[in-house]
């Protein structure tokens, strides 16, 4: 992470294409291995502690112990947990996450479509929240403590204090029930047209986006005002005689963006798992819904796969944020000497 000193040789281009950047990616991906491994072991262990087996759930409360025992044998649930974990791990390394205990479908097939739905939901939520938060924060920081800033502060604090399932229900009440402009539940896949697909995604995406919007607005506005009031380069920029918007956007925002990227990176990783409740409310066939169903049916194989996917996404999102940092901030040249 030393700043490169070989001045004048390189124009700071996309640093991630240079070899130290690639080495960083390699190193970080290697580091991700023990993290994901640890998560999978922990999940496996915890799932084994939960009372009730998949066989019991499948057969229902009327089943005799003998029937349950037979199915357990068939599913391999009688073998020691360590062996079952190693089996699972061996498969996972080769891309085979096993079969659902309930539907007997390969887990990778189940995950594929579910991940696409959750992914779309998260991406939409981020586009909406950031797309609105940046202009709001700029307007608020342009005149701190004036009317617009105060209104946006009230909105943000409200948004941050309302849980997103409450917000989701409110959105359904207003847009689906009273105004009847958007569907309350259900999912229309992209193959049936972008417009319909977006209509079905609008309310769930808004429910996730709004608290994020509030948070990003507060965060960015605060950082912008700090830059404007505390940083000497802002005074230099003002002393040049350039306009206030130019100072705000070209100078303060450029530097505030770095903090925002970090926060977004952290959120992105945790959010894919945070869609569980919203997917449930809007009956979206996403990965969160899949996991919830799997927990109810004690379908440990599927739960295990979901948790590992969440861990991988979190690691990748953080790596992405770090790399974005290196591309945007000329002071950071990872790994060069």
């Amino acid at each position: 992470m030393t700043a490169s000193v070989d001045a004048g040789r390189h124009r700071a281009g996309p640093a991630f294409l240079t070899s130290p950047g690639m080495r960083l990616v390699g190193k970080r991906l290697l580091l991700a291995v023990p993290i994901v491994l640890g998560v999978s072991i922990l999940t496996f262990w915890v799932l084994n502690l939960i009372p009730g087996s998949a066989a019991q759930q499948l057969l229902g409360p009327e089943a005799t112990p003998a029937q349950v025992r037979a199915l357990e044998l068939e599913l391999g649930l009688d073998r020691p947990a360590v062996l079952r974990y190693l089996d699972w791990l061996g498969g996972a390394v080769t891309g085979d996450l096993g079969q659902s205990l309930v539907s007997r479908q390969p887990v990778t097939d189940l995950l594929g479509e579910r991940l696409a739905v959750s992914g779309e939901l998260v991406v939409l939520a981020f586009v909406i929240s950031l797309g609105l938060a940046v202009p709001t924060a700029l307007l608020a920081a342009h005149r701190p403590n004036r009317l617009f800033d105060r209104i946006s502060m009230v909105v943000s604090i409200t948004g941050l204090s309302v849980a997103n399932y409450v917000l989701a229900l409110l959105l359904v009440l207003v847009f689906a029930v009273q105004m009847a402009v958007l569907p309350a539940i259900g999912f229309v896949p992209l193959s049936q047209g972008l417009g319909e697909n977006l209509r079905s995604m609008a309310l769930p995406a808004a429910a996730i986006a709004f608290p994020l919007y509030c948070f990003y607005t507060r965060f960015l506005r605060g950082d912008l005002v700090d830059q404007l009031q505390g940083e000497d380069y802002v005074t230099t920029a003002r002393a040049k005689g350039i306009g206030p918007w130019q100072v705000l956007v070209r100078h303060a925002f450029r530097n505030s963006a770095f903090g925002l990227i970090t926060v977004v990176g952290l959120n992105l990783g945790s959010l894919i798992g945070g869609t569980v409740i919203v997917e449930q409310i809007f009956a979206l066939p996403g990965i969160g819904q899949l996991m919830l169903q799997a927990i109810n049916t004690r379908d440990f194989v599927v739960v295990q796969a979901c948790v590992v996917v969440f861990a991988v996404v979190a690691v990748l999102a953080n790596l992405l944020a770090d790399l974005l940092y290196a591309v945007l901030d000329p002071r950071i040249r990872y790994g060069s000497r």
Partner: peptide, 17 residues
Amino acid sequence: TRSLNPTMRIGTQVVEA
């Protein structure tokens, strides 16, 4: 060190002025 914008090329900062 603090008076120049750390994320902008110096040429850009002079051109801006």
